[in-house]
Design a protein around this nucleic acid. Structure first.
Lengths: 182, 182
DNA sequence: CCTTAGTATATAAAAAATTATATATAATCT
DNA sequence: AGATTATATATAATTTTTTATATACTAAGG
């Protein structure tokens, strides 16, 4: 259950609403940790019950009120404990494309190739997004979540992983397309 | 919900028990699709209710009886429909290591490096497994799930993805370790 | 001016996945 | 000889995640 800690991690920088947490995840961790709006809301509620976070309601005119969450001392401690616990196993992954491929021996070759080319485009687009982001979004995010040099190194590393994964995927798709074509 | 189709895919080759399906997944799709024993059993049960599979009980002496599942015509049709539906989006991933790294600005540098090196070893070990497998396990699996040349190309592609992912991860870890060391 | 997208909130229901158990024999290790 | 691991089954409880809704204002586009 890592979403809990993700939320604690962000709230440790500054108090936020569920909505803001969703936006923040979408522009930062979504490549390696994502969640739906609804999951964030229900998780925050459970976290408040357990005393990891506290919320204050900010009255709004016209809009539904904002429920702003902040981390408690207990939450901060839980976050530290989690951060200190090393990851000792490889992460398991799910790759729908590979799963289908695995069972596609009798399928139409051309349909398969179209699909693989489509996936290649998607990875290419993602690469372009990484490049486009480099200035505007990153600096905006850095202002929202300050942390100095230390953070820059780690954040860049997670972005770099995204870039390398996309590049690797494109290379694999090119190889695979060629092999299927023969 | 792809586990359903994974099980149909395997049962399309030959009837099997939940236990055998788990073993088969572990030596074939586990790098891109995995499931726990319990999930396989409960999914099979639901699939039988929906008429996608049927089961016969084989009496055992001493052991609990074997419930052998086979795919029905309806199940075969569902599998084909699923296989024909192309994957149009990129797969979302979860990477616990990256998530922790992202929030680890204030953490002990040395502990972080130890963890990254540990992960490097795990990927290296997985690479070795891929190499070690090349003869014995693969041929055994090919006998269990026959399918000729067509299958060889696609199965090798999924294995190749595993190899390339491990290599990429090692490269990324080496880079990241170096950057953190400075 | 009307429609669509965006902001800002959520809740309910269903499905998927994990963790914890349970039983009982056979085989292997110490 | 005793303990552990593997084989061969599962079920129950819990947690996590997704899908489907719902409300209501604001801003922008056609």
């Amino acid at each position: 259950m890592s979403l809990k800690y993700t939320l604690l991690g962000f709230l440790n920088y500054q108090p936020m609403t569920g909505y803001e947490l969703k936006q923040t995840m979408d522009i930062s961790t979504s490549n390696f940790w994502h969640a739906k709006q609804s999951q964030i809301y229900t998780t925050l509620k459970k976290m408040e019950e357990k005393g990891l976070v506290m919320s204050d309601i900010e009255e709004q005119n016209g809009r539904p009120n904002r429920r702003v969450y902040k981390v408690t001392e207990s939450g901060r401690a839980a976050l530290q404990t989690w951060l200190k616990k090393p990851v000792m196993e490889l992460q398991a992954h799910k790759e729908l494309l590979l799963l289908k491929l695995f069972f596609s021996a009798d399928q139409d070759k051309q349909a398969l190739l179209t699909q693989l080319n489509w996936q290649r485009d998607l990875h290419q687009q993602r690469l372009a997004v990484y490049q486009g982001e480099t200035k505007a979004v990153i600096e905006q995010f850095a202002r929202m979540m300050p942390g100095g040099e230390q953070n820059a190194v780690l954040w860049n590393a997670t972005r770099r992983f995204g870039v390398m994964f996309a590049q690797m995927s494109i290379k694999w798709l090119d190889e695979t397309i060629k092999k299927i074509e023969d």
